[in-house]
């Protein structure tokens, strides 16, 4: 799980913020907190698809469901479990 958190932290800092040094907390509100915009969720979806080989339907990419790294991790874990 910690690895997953780190993976999201690295991806968001490097690819979305283009500032690899930027520190993000797992429970930090990303979109409502003004760090990334809702268009970036599309890239979050693509990142999940690529990294964990999951198909992310567009309806899951909402601010309510994906505003923190904790939420993103829970989403991926949940999907991976259901896949088994």
């Amino acid at each position: 799980m910690d690895e997953m958190v780190t993976a999201f932290q690295k991806f968001i800092a490097a690819d979305l913020l283009r500032d690899p040094e930027y520190q993000i907390e797992a429970n930090q509100s990303l979109i409502k907190g003004g760090l990334i915009d809702s268009f970036s969720l599309v890239q979050v979806g693509l990142f999940i698809e690529k990294t964990w080989k999951l198909k992310v339907p567009d309806r899951d990419l909402t601010v309510e469901r994906m505003d923190t790294i904790d939420q993103m991790v829970a989403y991926v874990q949940n999907r991976l479990q259901n896949k088994k």
């Binding site: 913020l17 979109i31 003004g34 760090l35």
Partner: peptide, 21 residues
């Protein structure tokens, strides 16, 4: 860091924009 977060949050909530930097 706290100030930076506060700025981002306020820009989003009060002006509906996301600051890149």
């Amino acid at each position: 860091r706290k100030i930076e977060r506060e700025i981002r949050q306020r820009l989003t909530r009060q002006a509906d924009v996301t600051a890149h930097r």
